[in-house]
């Protein structure tokens, strides 16, 4: 009775093919790549795809993970960040998962990566035309807040009928005096489709506009992939007389590298360290901050 043999795992017996450690078979990869190509061809348009089961919960990066797994080849180097940080629990786990199942090289240096998978941030350094940014998207539908009916949503996108999106911005301004939407600010891509930029902060939106790199957005739970090809307009929706503004905290600067202080001459997206009275701030992009420190650009 082999099943009772303690040296052989029953799972191994049940598994058909144990030679590959990959999570996606070749057909699945091809299907995802096709969706990616369609997305690149129609900037900002949400392409449906058959989201596979991943060993992470849906809504925890399964969309971005599938894109990365479908794209990586032997010559690729992958960087994974969460809130700008390579060492975040989710980022570290996803990076290990990708490396273990595909054998791809990993890095924390933005400039060395060919694929940067991210949740919440775009790296502070501009990416080049040989790099791909993969974003993990929880809610791909920018109009979800103003309309729930899927058929109507499709019609609105098809006809470029975004009046109600504008009205939601109007109402926000009337009620609060400012546009309160922080992450996921709606943007018009290539002058045609309105896209959700969830979950990146407003700070990162200008980095998508006419960028050299390709941005791919994957929503595993909602089964959608969309893209911003290189050199494509990404314009935040805003009224002519109400300028789009990125987040800034007055007087805050990174307590490690000094970014954000007047004499540093550079700015980065800062996050407040938890449990520090009066507020101690640090760069959200830890790799960028570390490199500033180690390169001696900053006098400590």
């Amino acid at each position: 009775m082999t099943l009772l043999d303690p040296t052989i795992s029953p799972v191994a017996l049940l598994a058909a093919d144990t030679s590959s450690r990959e999570l996606l078979d070749e057909f699945s990869k091809r299907e995802i790549r096709r969706a990616v190509l369609t997305a690149v061809a129609v900037p900002g348009y949400q392409v449906p795809f058959a989201s596979r089961e991943m060993p992470v919960a849906r809504g925890w990066g399964s969309g971005g993970l599938q894109i990365t797994l479908a794209l990586v080849g032997p010559e690729d180097t992958v960087k994974v960040i969460d809130q700008g940080e390579d060492a975040g629990v989710n980022a570290a786990n996803l990076r290990r998962l990708i490396a273990d199942t595909t054998g791809v090289d990993t890095t924390t240096v933005a400039g060395e990566a060919t694929i940067v998978q991210t949740r919440h941030r775009v790296p502070e350094d501009a990416l080049g035309d040989d790099q791909i940014l993969v974003l993990q998207v929880p809610v791909p539908e920018p109009l979800r807040g103003v309309e729930r009916d899927m058929t109507e949503l499709r019609r609105m996108h098809a006809e470029g009928d975004y009046a109600r999106m504008w009205v939601s911005l109007y109402e926000d301004l009337v009620r609060n005096g400012v546009i309160t939407q922080t992450t996921g600010y709606p943007c018009l891509v290539g002058g045609r489709y309105v896209m959700a930029t969830t979950p990146i902060p407003r700070w990162d939106i200008p980095k998508l506009h006419r960028s050299a790199h390709l941005s791919l957005f994957g929503a595993g739970r909602e089964k959608r992939i969309y893209a911003v090809p290189p050199h494509t307009d990404v314009e935040p929706l805003t009224f002519d007389d109400v300028p789009f503004e990125v987040e800034r905290t007055e007087g805050a600067s990174c307590h490690r590298c000094g970014a954000g202080s007047p004499d540093s001459g550079v700015e980065s997206f800062l996050v407040e360290l938890p449990g520090t009275e009066g507020g101690r701030w640090v760069c959200s992009d830890t790799d960028w901050c570390n490199r500033r420190l180690s390169s001696g650009m900053v006098a400590r």
Binding site: A163, R164, W166, V167, Y170, V174, F239, D240, D241
Partner: peptide, 26 residues
Amino acid sequence: LDLRLSAGGNVAERLTAAGWRNFGRI
């Protein structure tokens, strides 16, 4: 009308549909 929106918002919907993009003028 969209009853969830303000009176002004309802009017703004028509105006933005016609291409109005200036908050003050709306």
